[in-house]
Amino acid sequence: MSSFPRVVVYGASGHALACRDMLENGFAPHRVCEVIAYMKDGAEEGASVDGLPLISFEDWQARYAREIPCIVSIAAPTPRKRLVQKVVDAGGFFIPFYDRPEVAFRKVKVGEGSGIALPVFIGQNSRIGAHVLVSPMCSIGHDVTIGDYCSLAPSVTISGNVVVKEGVFLGAGSVVVNGKADKPLIIGEGCNISAGAVVTKSVPDGETMIGNPAITLDEFSRTRRYLRDVVPEEDEE
């Protein structure tokens, strides 16, 4: 029997397959678990994905809920939170994968149900919450707190002394500049940071930020209206 904890991945898309690779091979040679099945609502009996059984939620509940932990592979934070609660309500559970000495980051705490793909840098004294998905090539600085259910797409950079609240999505290549020890830069709950955006100041809850430096969608719309009204169009030849 494998010495690694066994786990069921909730999801069966390409992202779910990537999560399996992340968990089994991302810390090579220090894998963090063994995926034994994928789970999908309404899956047909006898189906398979990527060489593993694809089981329905009902089948998982009957066979594995109280014995095998889950990880929810859905990329978007809000539906991931909903499915985590569905698993808990059905008697399922989650575990931390990065608390063993051979896979732990130095002076970093990672919550249950979170997945982190190498190569990733995480600075000292940082905390990654529960059910967070961190894609490859991300850099997370020192003294950073990332709340539960956040998603970091590939190549996200978060500098030191930053607080990312619950349910934030950071798009590919986005950058969050550093805060201060006594005044961290804060990204509010449920924010969406678009791909390539550069966040230079704290962001209120629920905002979508775009551009460099990053501005809200409302600010972007006002700027476009201003330019349309005051900048004359070139004369047509």
Rank of each mutant, 00 (worst) to 15 (best):
Pro79Tyr: 08
Ile68Phe: 09
Cys138Thr: 01
Ala90Met: 13
Ile55Lys: 01
Leu133Met: 11
Met137His: 13
Cys150Tyr: 12
Ile146Glu: 11
Ile116Lys: 03
Val120Met: 02
Ile74Arg: 11
Arg63Thr: 13
Arg63His: 11
Phe97Val: 07
Ala104Ser: 15
Gln85Arg: 12
Lys107Ala: 14
Asp59Met: 10
Phe121Val: 14
Phe105Trp: 13
Glu67Phe: 14
Pro79Ile: 08
Arg63Trp: 04
Phe105Val: 05
Val88His: 07
Gly115Thr: 14
Ile55Val: 15
Gln61Ser: 12
Ser135Ile: 00
Ala62Trp: 03
Pro79Arg: 05
Leu133Glu: 05
Phe121Thr: 09
Ser114Phe: 06
Ala76Val: 07
Ser139Arg: 14
Ile122Leu: 10
Arg82Asp: 13
Phe94Ile: 00
Asp59Thr: 15
Gly91Tyr: 04
Pro96Asp: 06
Cys150Asn: 09
Arg66Cys: 14
Asp148Tyr: 07
Gly111Met: 07
Gly141Phe: 04
Leu133His: 09
Ile146Phe: 08
Ile68Arg: 03
Phe57Gly: 14
Lys107Leu: 10
Ser155Gly: 03
Asp148Met: 08
Ala62Met: 12
Pro77Ser: 06
Val110Asp: 01
Ser139Tyr: 14
Val132Glu: 04
His131Gln: 14
Tyr149Pro: 01
Glu102Cys: 10
Gly91Ala: 14
Gly129Tyr: 00
Val144Glu: 11
Glu58His: 10
Ile116Ala: 06
Arg66Asp: 15
Ile116Cys: 06
Val103Gln: 13
Gly91Thr: 04
Gln85Gly: 03
His142Ala: 07
Ile71Pro: 00
Gly123Asp: 02
Gly141Asn: 06
Ile140Gln: 00
Ile55His: 01
Val88Pro: 03
Ser114Val: 04
Val87Glu: 00
Ala153His: 08
Pro69Phe: 06
Ile146Ala: 07
Pro101Thr: 04
Asp143His: 10
Ala62Phe: 07
Leu52Gly: 02
Glu112Thr: 05
Ile146His: 05
Gly111His: 09
Pro53Lys: 07
Ser73Gln: 07
Leu52Asn: 04
Val132Trp: 02
Gly147Cys: 07
Ile146Gln: 10
Ala130His: 14
Cys150Asp: 08
Lys86Pro: 03
Leu83Asp: 06
Ala75Asn: 13
Ser126Pro: 03
Lys86Asn: 13
Ala130Gly: 03
Cys150Gly: 08
Leu52Gln: 06
Gln124Thr: 09
Gly92Met: 00
Ser135Asn: 11
Cys150Met: 08
Val88Trp: 03
Ile95Ser: 08
Ser155Pro: 00
Leu133Val: 12
Ala75Lys: 11
Phe94Trp: 00
Lys81Leu: 08
Arg63Lys: 15
Ile140Asp: 02
